[in-house]
């Protein structure tokens, strides 16, 4: 049964280590909110992919050299029109412009560097704060589609 979209925004804020049960629960909250607002499976696939990549980047790159349980701050706000998710690590930050294009012929066989491009491919916008330790993902629902 298709739920009736809710006009009330859903939001949440959680600080969590990169540990599967916690990440699943946090991502599950965002997807549940998207479900309440009538987002399609394709929209939820896009959101899940981008949030998972942002969390993995925060852990793998942002928290490199830090304890495994270093906390990541995840915030989200979902409305009928858009979903906005921010992921912030406690690391020194990075320069997103310095990430090589993984789709270039010479980079195709490199095993890393695709997370950021996937976030950009699936989200309406992907922006970083000046320090480079907080990414904001915006997913605007396609006009005229559920």
């Amino acid at each position: 049964m298709t739920p009736t979209p809710s006009s009330q925004p859903d939001s949440g804020r959680v600080r969590l280590p990169y540990e599967r049960a916690g990440v699943d629960s946090a991502v599950g909250s965002i997807l549940a909110a998207a479900g309440r607002h009538g987002y399609t499976d394709a929209s939820k696939f896009a959101l899940r992919l981008a949030v998972e990549e942002a969390m993995a980047n925060a852990h793998r790159h942002g928290h490199r050299g830090k304890p495994d349980d270093a906390p990541i701050l995840l915030e989200f706000r979902v409305t009928d029109r858009e979903a906005v998710v921010t992921v912030e690590d406690t690391g020194p930050g990075f320069d997103p412009a310095g990430v090589p294009d993984p789709t270039l012929e010479e980079n195709l066989e490199r095993p890393s560097g695709r997370g950021l491009m996937l976030m950009r491919a699936y989200m309406t916008s992907v922006t970083f704060n000046e320090r480079g330790n907080r990414v904001t993902l915006v997913y605007r629902r396609p006009a005229g589609r559920a």
Partner: peptide, 16 residues
Amino acid sequence: DHLSSAALGTLITINN
């Protein structure tokens, strides 16, 4: 149903 860029990286390593 879902896979991450890290999983793609592993597939590339195996391909190599």
